[in-house]
Design a binder for these strands. Structure first.
Lengths: 231, 231
DNA sequence: TAGTGGTCTAGACCACTTT
DNA sequence: AAGTGGTCTAGACCACTAT
């Protein structure tokens, strides 16, 4: 692992563990440089990247401090589909189609920021609302960040829940598109004939890197995404 | 101005002016360093920041290249489609299909928070990116909040721009779904056969109430929505 | 005045891609 | 083999903040 990454992790752990609360001062560039026996430029890079990620705030002449927690005004919160369905007073169920390790294609490797040909974990799960599938979740997981992913029972716990436990998420990006479903997807979604589907591609990061890439496909007739913004 | 900023600007201008199109190679770190008489580390910082901003893509061993422009809109921000398209260095054009007053249906009345049967203004406009329609905008407007809506020329100004001027928006809600386009929409979108479309329903408020309800339909093959969240 | 972060230099070694 | 980006060093000067 690169030296600056090790320093980032060290600082992040102090914050995540609660040892350094909000606004607590972070070790200075010089302090980290001598502690880790690196040049100041290397220590600096670690702190700079944490600042870019919003984890830390730097003030010229004053120092580096743990950033206050952001207000929850996100347009699209990362929601757990099981909770979502249960909050509508409906029954939730799931069906696991695939749960195995496989070799990363080029696309998947790029999404997870690993090398093509490396091993990844893959799960494909249908999520049911009142006995009708509303989502097929195709999920690729970085084995280094969740080594026990394949050992979980995804009937009692969603992959999202498990991953949040072992790798608290710090960042996510989404891509939303409309697609025609494959024949396989039609089966999994219990669609007798193809209909437009809403597809969400979601990459999620923890402090240690990209944890997972998920492709979530929903039948257009059974799903829509909502959001609210205030200015 | 800092040296690395000057280099960033130089590279950005080459791209913005069109001199360096998509995937065009960008001067290497060493080339920029000698050209601007700075150290490689300084030239490197300029390119690195452009990469972080998604303007440029770097590949180890290969070089730095102008990033391909994705037809992608952030759903975190309400943006003006004309600006969006122009910011991708593409041509923008529009075609007005409908611009008239009509009686509000029950659905429209509810969306605009007025009485069914009241008069509303309606516009239907196609928005073109490089001569291909990427959005059909069907918009219902509350006449009380924008009485001159029908008198505008929507070739030089988008409805969104006009409404923001007369009624600064304070709030918005979105609903996103996948649908099969009607025959009429296929015509307006220049689709020879129906394909899954991404549809956004957007209600926007000013301080005085609901200003407008818009139904934005995009061909799935020509459009996707992106977003990024940090925690 | 001492300490901090912001910028910059002139080297270096490495892994990788292209030729 | 030559060129590229990724990492790192051991210095330097500056502007700013706190004391």
């Amino acid at each position: 692992m690169a030296k600056f990454s090790a320093i980032k992790e060290h600082v992040y752990n102090k914050i995540a563990s609660g040892e350094w609360p909000e606004n607590h001062p972070v070790s200075s560039e010089n302090a980290l440089a001598s502690q880790f026996k690196v040049s100041r430029m290397t220590a600096r890079r670690a702190l700079q990247e944490l600042a870019d990620e919003g984890i830390v705030i730097r003030t010229k002449g004053s120092g580096t401090f743990v950033a206050p927690i952001k207000s929850q005004t996100s347009f699209m919160a990362i929601r757990n589909i099981a909770d979502e369905i249960r909050s509508r007073q409906h029954d939730y169920a799931s069906q696991v189609h695939v749960l195995r390790r496989q070799v990363a294609s080029e696309l998947i490797a790029e999404m997870l920021n690993i090398a093509a040909g490396d091993e990844v974990y893959l799960s494909v799960i249908s999520h049911f609302e009142n006995d009708l599938p509303v989502q097929v979740e195709e999920r690729y997981v970085n084995p280094k960040l969740a080594p026990d992913y394949l050992k979980q029972d995804y009937h009692s716990l969603t992959p999202h829940e498990y991953l949040c436990e072992v790798q608290p998420l710090t960042e996510a990006s989404h891509q939303i598109e409309a697609v025609a479903p494959s024949q396989q997807l039609c089966q999994w979604l219990h669609l007798s004939k193809p209909e437009p589907c809403l597809r969400i591609h979601r990459r999620t990061w923890s402090a240690k890197g990209v944890v997972t890439y998920a492709v979530l496909t929903h039948p257009g007739s059974r799903f829509s995404l909502g959001g609210h913004l205030q200015f």
